[in-house]
Amino acid sequence: MKKAVTSAHSCRRQGLASCLVLLLLAGSVLAAPQPGRRVWQRRTPPPADSLLATSLPADAAAQPPLRRPAAARLQELSQQHEFQYTDVTETPANPSLWDRLLSWIWDHLSRLLDTRGGHLVWNTLWYGLMGATLIFAVLKLLQVDITKVFGRAPRALPLAYEMGQENIHELNFADALAQAETAGNLRLAVRLGYLQLLKQLTDRDFIAWQPDKTNQTYLRELAASQPTARPAFAELTRQFEYAWYGELPVSAALYQRVRETQRQFGQQLSGAGRAAHLT
């Protein structure tokens, strides 16, 4: 047992020794200078007077030689367009009045714009125009009607006709009826008689006259206000519509019958109006 312990101790001692040898070898290898490897060392500055001692070599040639082109060649080159750095205006031999006017305008413009203020104006105009174009394009894309900004009406086609409205309260029915009867225009006479009845109904507040209302609307209104008068007015409406919209030829005999019916209805209305007034 004791023998085994001593042998283990001797083995451990041998391992440590070999490790130490390896470390020493590696350190020597790393410390040795290698080709291509930079070794950083602190430099000692040279003495102050060493700079004065070393001087630059003297210039062998005092002045470099200059190459000068031949005068003829220089003259030839200067005549070429590419070497003329100022604009040469070609003036025609015999300028017309129009050419002279254009030239005068351009001269003045260039003189104006070729100043500091001119440049400012020019730049302002240019950027302003670009900005306006951009805004216009955006508004066009968004389909914005900019005319509204100036208080104008939106774009709409103007009506190709007059929107005049006939007012039955301003018509002189007696004269108009007499004229139509005299002229033999009995269709018109039937129409005027019917309009006269509408006026009477409106005057008595049985219906509310409006130019956009149809005859059927008035019939509904009359049915609500004067139910008893509705059947007679429905028949008169039918006669008017057949004569006017249906373009039915109205004979003298037919007209007499229609006119009589219209008169009777008018008288009924007068009676109904008086009764309504009394109640």
Partner: peptide
């Protein structure tokens, strides 16, 4: 509805056939 029913067909029994106010 009132708009459509405002007029019943009238040719079936013309109320004013005697006076000539009937469809031609």
């Amino acid at each position: 509805s009132p708009a459509l029913a405002s007029e019943a067909p009238t040719n079936t029994a013309p109320a004013d056939a005697a006076t000539g106010f009937v469809p031609r």
